[in-house]
Each structure stands twice: as structure tokens, then as C-alpha cells.
Design a protein around this nucleic acid. Sequence first.
DNA 1: CGAAACGTTGACCGTTTTCAATTACAGTGG
DNA 2: CCACTGTAATTGAAAACGGTCAACGTTTCG
Lengths: 207, 207
Amino acid sequence: MQGPIAKHQPDTWTDIVSADRVRLRELTGNEVLFRQNDPVTALYRLEAGRIRLVRYLEDGTTVILHTARSGETFAEASAFADAYHCDAVAEIASRVATVPKSEFLSALAQNPATSLRFARLLASQVRDLRSRLEIRNIRSAPERLMAWLRLRARGRPPTAVLDETWSDVAAEVGLTREAVYRALALLEQDGSIVRTNGAVVLSKRAV
Amino acid sequence: MQGPIAKHQPDTWTDIVSADRVRLRELTGNEVLFRQNDPVTALYRLEAGRIRLVRYLEDGTTVILHTARSGETFAEASAFADAYHCDAVAEIASRVATVPKSEFLSALAQNPATSLRFARLLASQVRDLRSRLEIRNIRSAPERLMAWLRLRARGRPPTAVLDETWSDVAAEVGLTREAVYRALALLEQDGSIVRTNGAVVLSKRAV
DNA sequence: CGAAACGTTGACCGTTTTCAATTACAGTGG
DNA sequence: CCACTGTAATTGAAAACGGTCAACGTTTCG
């Protein structure tokens, strides 16, 4: 596995089916993409916007299973199911690429290497998600942010290049943006990092 | 997908290779299973104990990528890599089932359905991990715990059966055990849950 | 050009973490 | 069979940390 471990744009498997079978669909805020128990017709990649996956319980309460963000694929597991196991609702106006399930499955069946590729992408997703979870086990905001930066960093000295806003980073590490700014200030003060435009250089200095 | 969504014991792909090629290996505390850049010889399932996956940075600092717990598989992504991308060290005495990489890959190559099965298991892992991450976005301890219980709950009335200790639950939801006990007390007080031996019954009453 | 989102910092408050202490067991070995 | 040890379950009190609210300059973009 040559590529970086924590990728900004996750790899996608949607190009496994020929591009002309992928349809784009626009959703308005609150529009429903699919509902729990609907037969699975397609898998998706979110091009823009934000989609919430919600599960309903027997007693009428709900749990948010996931909030898909721009660039993410979702409902992968549905490829192996007959019906969706949750609702998908656009939080804001969104655009999704829809990959017909049947096309996808037949593409996998036709070419064994394709299944492997799908598995490889999922495996790297698992790796990435596990590390995100691990980062959230760190309670201290500065340390958590530092760990996140370390994961992002490449080269010598380790440098994290940012293609997203700090607010986005805050959401990813599970802090408010204010907490992130304060953490940044602290880390910069004690010399752990140096901020340059659009990138952060890490200096050795284990907290 | 018929099975429960959040499984306690994750499904495993290790039985894809015939059982007699799977070797058990015992590790003492702090023993190293593999090191970053070692050629990938095997994939693993942790039978007992705890294994930490650690990544080293250019400047000598480290990041914990994941802490594998009993029953979990790990290093799946290594199946597609030449070398491990992190160290694996036993935190405590542990037992791992080792699946030879070559055996595994040839099993996948021989039978296309096997690759699909591997992909299916990975996809459900992704689903599970995403929901765990989502739960951690809930700041309030009682609400977070409640969301976790809802995910676990089955049947009518929704009931969560516990096969782990509350301390384990605390680690999973990212709280201290004290915070979990207090959250439990609150939820029980306001009638959201009823605790019986080894199980929790949820009552409707959205917080 | 104006609105919206981003970046940043201060102050205060609430919740969770920490530290501490106690009870309840379950397993162990004498 | 029981004292003994270690872990789980609980609860209390104090401290610390991050969330929330507020304010303001700056950048972005239609």
C-alpha cells in the first residue's frame, strides 16, 4: 500500500462500473434518498452536500448512524443486502452519484480482480476509521489535535498540508472550532508546531 | 443483510483459509508481533489480549493507530501491501490466530465468491465503525450512552443485552467508567431505561 | 458590495475527568 | 470452607477542561 494512510478524499470504488451507468442526482435539503426497507437499487457517492443515515427503532426513536460528507461513498454494505437498513436524508442540498447495484454486482462477478479492488478500498477505509476512532480516545484537545496532525504529516520535517478549513478539522477530530483554535495556539506557543499558510510543520517535542 | 448491525463479536474472514493453515501464537506483554516495513507474511485475528498498532513518524514520535481487542481481526489492509505500515505490539499477554497471507490471497483468487465475502465483511465493519464514530459526536454522556444502547437494542421493547462489563462499554463509547455509571443513574432516574441483570430495557422517552 | 463563512480570542459555566473511598463479588489457595 | 486478592460497580467532592456565547476582524463569493 503505497499511498498515504489517512487520505483526505477517500478512494472510491464507484468507477468500477462504467462511467456512463453512473447517474447524478440532485437532492434538496431534507429530501429523502432512500428509506429503511426500500429494496436496494443503488450504491452512492456523495459529490457535494451532506447526507444523514438514520436508523429507526421499534419504539419510534432514531439513531444517526453516519453523516456522509462530500467525497464519501456510502451504503456500501447495501450491495450485499436486499433492503436498506436505514434512511438516507439530505441535510442540505446535495448531489450524489448513484451506482446501480445490479451493474455493480455484475461488474464484480465478471472480473475477480474487481472484487479484490473493492475489498482493498474497504480495507483501507477500515484502517482509516479505526485510526480516527483511536484519536478520539485522546481526551486533551491539544494532544488530540497533535495526534491528528501527526497522522496527516508527511516528509521531513513532518508537515501536514491542509486542504480543508479548521472548522472541518474540528468536526473530524470531534471538537468545536474554538477548542481547535485554542489548541493550535497552545501547540504553537510551546513550539510543537509552526503554522505557515495552509500547512503545519511539526517539531519534535513529545507532549 | 439479515444479522444485527452492531455486533459484539465482529464477523471474521479468517475462516476463508482452511483451519489447519491458521496457527495460534502466544505473545507476552510488550512482545512485538510485527514491525513497520517488515514484509507482510500474515493477517491476524486476536483471540485474547490486546494489541496496539503504532505508527512511527520521521521525527521519532509515534501515533497509536488502533488498539485491537479480543475477537477483532486486524492488518486486513496488509493483505494488499508488501510491508506492514505500523508496529503491532501486545499490550498484555495475548493470543493471535495468524492467517498466512499467501494462503489467504490464493483462496480469494481461487474462488470469486470468497472475495465477495471478504468484501461483505469489510463493508459491515465500515458500517459499524462509522456508527461508533457518529456516537462520539454526541457530547452529553447520558445521551451518548443512550444512543449506544439504542444501537444495541433488539426487540420490543428495545432491550440491550450486555456481554461485557460497563468498563468495557465506557471504553467503547469514549467515556470514563464513572461517567458511564453516572449516566446510567440519570437515565434510570428519568425512566429512560430499566436495568435488569445483564440487560437494559429502553423505554420511549426521547431526551 | 454585502452577506456568509472563516479565523481568533475572551469570559463564564457546566460536565466530565480525576482522585478517593466503599461495597460486592468471584476466584484461589491454604 | 474461609480469609485473601483483584476486579467490577458505585458514589462523592474538587479540579480542569472544553463547550457555549459573544464580539470582531478578515476573507470569500455570488
